[in-house]
Design a protein around this nucleic acid. Structure first.
Length: 361
DNA sequence: GAATCGTGGTT
DNA sequence: TAACCAAGATT
């Protein structure tokens, strides 16, 4: 007997989906599977929250190692709230969208300070916390607390626009998708339903070459009936990505230490660590030469270029290297070679340092 | 609504 | 190779 039987209110599609999920759920470190859930086991809201923040616009494969690192080092929301922000940024380095890491700390602090160290159990209560928006509030409420909330992420948008062959382009179709999910969802197993929809989108109803023959909803899918399910969801064409240029300056001390500094508190890579750089300008003839280097007395040598793609522009970074031993300017410090890997260096900076000091990253 | 905000994998 | 995409949030 299941602890949370399928509700009589569930749509036929939801019942088929849950039956599929009971046999094909992905095994994920932050997840309580359908069998354990039916036995009454509940997920840890802290782990659900942490995973949902990490998974925003980020693949499961990329999240796994970070999730393990974070939960090992900070096993509870109280532990995370007590951690210095710099430690969290260092541990987040490489995962991207760094405002998530700063909001993670703020959110943990708010839960400890305003909620007695336990997570709010309503969509509205969760939604009011830093870094938690429409999707994440619904997902945590459904998965951690079995609140019957419509959970709509990119997977669900794809599944639903295909099921109903919705011609309206995203994001304009999102309200309609939410309504449909709200009508579909199983009031008996809201958490499993939300995760089942996402698993279906991730493993069967994929963006390219969906495995419709294995889909539990194939008999209900209007997009499949059209013969071209890949055509959905309809999306507006993307704007092309501008190219920017800049230069990075890797200064090493004779003992191998590297000169680093902290970026400002707002904008791109806010609060993260970098080597000195020029601004990154949209001008193709922007400053990329040694005349832009700090410490003009040093013998700067051009050692190559790195290409890096951000969300809304591509960057071609000319990399310069020099060796010297001088006093860091305000806000700068020498990072010993053996500590470099622990710094809050975003990937673009690891590329630049690796270009100047082969074998470092 | 549009722009901003990272990175790595897939096609 | 370039485009697309991934459990989106914030301003």
């Amino acid at each position: 007997m299941s602890a949370l039987p399928d509700s009589d209110l569930a749509s036929p599609a939801a019942r088929k989906l849950l039956a599929w999920y009971d046999n094909h759920a992905r095994d994920l470190p932050w997840r309580v599977g359908p069998a354990e859930r039916a036995r009454g086991e509940r997920p840890d809201p802290y782990r659900v929250w942490l995973s949902e923040i990490m998974l925003q616009q980020t693949t499961v494969a990329a999240v796994r190692a970070y999730f393990h690192t974070f939960t090992t080092r900070w096993p509870s929301v109280a532990a995370l709230a007590a951690a210095p922000e710099d430690d969290i940024l260092k541990a987040w380095a490489g995962l991207g969208y760094y405002s998530r890491a700063r909001n993670l700390k703020k959110c943990a602090e708010a839960i400890v300070a305003d909620h007695g160290g336990t997570f709010p159990q309503t969509v509205e209560g969760l939604r009011a916390l830093p870094g938690i928006g429409e999707y994440t509030s619904s997902a945590i409420a459904a998965i951690a607390f079995d609140v019957p909330a419509p959970v709509v992420d990119g997977n669900v948008e794809r599944v639903v626009t295909r099921l109903h062959a919705i011609e309206t382009a995203l994001p304009r179709a999102k309200p309609e998708v939410r309504t449909i999910v709200g009508e579909m969802l199983d009031a008996g197993r809201p958490g499993d339903f939300a995760q089942a929809m996402m698993d279906l989108g991730a493993t069967i109803c994929t963006p390219k070459r969906p495995a419709c023959l294995h889909c539990p909803l194939r008999g209900d899918c209007r997009a499949l009936a059209t013969g071209d399910p890949e055509r959905f969801p309809v999306k507006a064409p993307r704007k092309d990505k501008p190219r920017r240029v800049g230069a990075a300056f890797v200064l090493t001390r004779p003992d191998g230490a590297v000169l680093l500094e902290k970026r400002g508190g707002t904008g791109l890579l806010a609060g993260m660590t970098q080597v000195p750089t020029t601004g990154w300008t949209a001008r193709a003839d922007g400053e990329t030469g040694r005349e832009a280097a700090p410490f003009q007395s040093l013998d700067w040598v051009r050692c190559g270029a790195v290409a890096h793609v951000f969300t809304h522009f591509s960057l071609d970074l000319t990399v310069w290297r020099a060796t010297g031993d001088l006093a860091p300017r305000a806000g700068q410090w020498w990072s010993p070679a053996e500590e470099l890997g622990g710094e809050a260096l975003p990937t673009v900076m690891k590329k630049a340092i690796g270009c100047a000091l082969p074998g470092t990253f």
